Simulated assay, not measured.
Amino acid sequence: MVERKLYYTHNINPRVAVAVARHLESPVEFIRYSPMGEDREAFLPLNPNSLAPLLVEDDRPLWEADAIALRLSQMAGGDFWPDDHAVEMMQWVSWSAHHFTVAGAGLVWHNHTAVSWMGSPDPAVVAGIAEDFHRFASILDATLAGRQWLVGNRLTYADFRVASALPYAERGQIPLEGYSNIVEWHDRLNAIDAWREPFAGLD
Rank of each mutant, 00 (worst) to 15 (best):
L140M: 06
Q148C: 04
L150H: 11
R135H: 06
V102E: 06
P123Q: 11
F133E: 12
V126Q: 07
N111T: 09
Q148A: 05
N111Q: 08
S138I: 03
G152D: 10
A158V: 08
F100S: 01
G119M: 09
L155S: 00
A127E: 15
A142M: 01
S120L: 11
A105K: 12
S164K: 01
W109H: 05
H134G: 04
D122I: 06
V108Y: 11
S138Y: 07
S164D: 06
H99D: 12
Y157A: 02
G106F: 03
T113Q: 02
P121K: 15
H134Y: 10
A165Q: 06
H134V: 10
G146Y: 05
A114W: 01
D141Q: 07
R161W: 00
V151R: 07
G119L: 13
T143D: 08
L150F: 07
F133Y: 11
R154K: 14
Q148V: 05
S164P: 01
I129F: 12
R161A: 14
F160E: 00
N153V: 04
H110M: 10
G128N: 08
F136P: 01
G119N: 08
L144Y: 08
H134M: 06
V115P: 02
S138K: 14
L107R: 15
T143K: 13
G104C: 14
V125L: 14
